[in-house]
Design a protein around this nucleic acid. Structure first.
Lengths: 208, 208
DNA sequence: TTGGTAATTGTGCAAGTGTATAATTACTGC
DNA sequence: GCAGTAATTATACACTTGCACAATTACCAA
């Protein structure tokens, strides 16, 4: 009578990954409210009951999802460095431009970032990851700034302040691009970012 | 038998303010999930039904709460500017400095802002308020930038781009101040912000 | 081929959600 | 004082949520 749906046994790693992916997708699209057990299971091509088989509770699943998200972010921003040019000025300009252009600017990313941001004050593990990610990005930026200044024969003593300001500028532009899609013409933010960096460092960065 | 609880009629403004305060407190403490109609009413010393009497829907209440929060931050950034000399440069510097100093920088405010960012994708009322408050702050900043440039005898045609960049810079610094309290010395962000603006506008802003 | 096992499904439930609405009550103007 | 009115409460409802648990079924080993 009531025919059960057929299924395949997929093993622990596959299923956990699928559930985590579905969770991240849903949070990115509609915020945490949208990530219900039923919606997650549906998107993962699975039945709600299975979630409980791999995660003791839904909180555990969400926590695991955030962990993989953060790990992915750090890896992604590190990988992108190799493709930049060698010339310090062009390298910095490329880095800055990438940070405020697709695919880095993406409403999904901003929504996910906001969701995890909200856990930072309450969750010490989350705070540690946030700190490490932030300082890692800022450190890379500071290195590039130093190299660019050095190549132009300029002193580098205020690089910390410049990196903090530059990082804040990129963060803000990234958020605005993600939170208000359609408010900016394509390439407008990139141009704004590079021009702003040129003035911040008093250097001529190529817009490329 | 069933004795109704006694109450006092408090008038529209009082009640709306109380409900909004309760909403903000709850979201700050436990995220958007914690702000249920019952919890809000309890904290506001009121019955859940009353919410519907002052707000058509719960979404409206949350959006109104976000609006008062953001407008409060904008006003706090503009506070005490009148006491400054009537100099556009000093006014802009004061505004910039305020925006990245206590009480504007505050972990609670950042947490609330992050919480509302997760509501924006699904909640249309929230999206409208977000857009309006963002453009409101940026508009004020752009006005001040224009006045400062004009006072220095400089062209103002690129004020839009400068306002976008300046706003992003302030947003980023504000977020980091709230998310990583203790990472910056008192006054460090203010100094960084004013110096960065000086370079962005190619003007000498007083650090006050 | 056949059990055995664990992955997976389906159903049900108790608690919590936002909202609608009628019943009450405090205050206002006369 | 006294009606009228709007603020406030109380109750009910339809719906969603996370979770528990028994029933099933795909796969594996022998």
């Amino acid at each position: 009578m009531t025919e059960r749906r057929s299924f395949v046994r997929a093993g622990e790693e596959t299923r956990r990954a699928a559930l985590i992916d579905a969770t991240l997708d849903l949070i990115a699209e509609g915020g945490p409210q949208a990530a219900t057990v039923r919606a997650i299971a549906l998107r993962a091509g699975v039945t709600p009951g299975l979630i409980r088989h791999y995660f003791d509770t839904k909180e555990d699943l969400v926590a695991a999802a955030h962990e993989t998200l953060m790990n992915g972010l750090t890896e992604a921003s590190a990988a992108q460095l190799d493709e930049l040019p060698d010339d310090p000025l062009a390298r910095l300009a490329g880095f800055v431009g990438n940070a405020v252009s697709p695919p880095v600017t993406d409403p999904r990313g901003v929504a996910l970032w906001a969701a995890s941001m909200q856990l930072v004050p309450r969750d010490s593990a989350m705070r540690a990851v946030h700190e490490a990610t932030y300082l890692g990005f800022r450190g890379r930026l500071e290195d590039m700034i130093c190299e660019a200044l050095h190549a132009a024969g300029r002193p580098t003593q205020s690089s910390r302040a410049l990196a903090i300001a530059g990082n804040a500028l990129l963060d803000g532009l990234w958020i605005e691009a993600g939170a208000l899609p359609g408010h900016f013409a394509p390439g407008e933010l990139k141009s704004i970012a590079i021009n702003a960096f040129s003035r911040l460092l008093e250097l001529e960065l190529p817009e490329g």
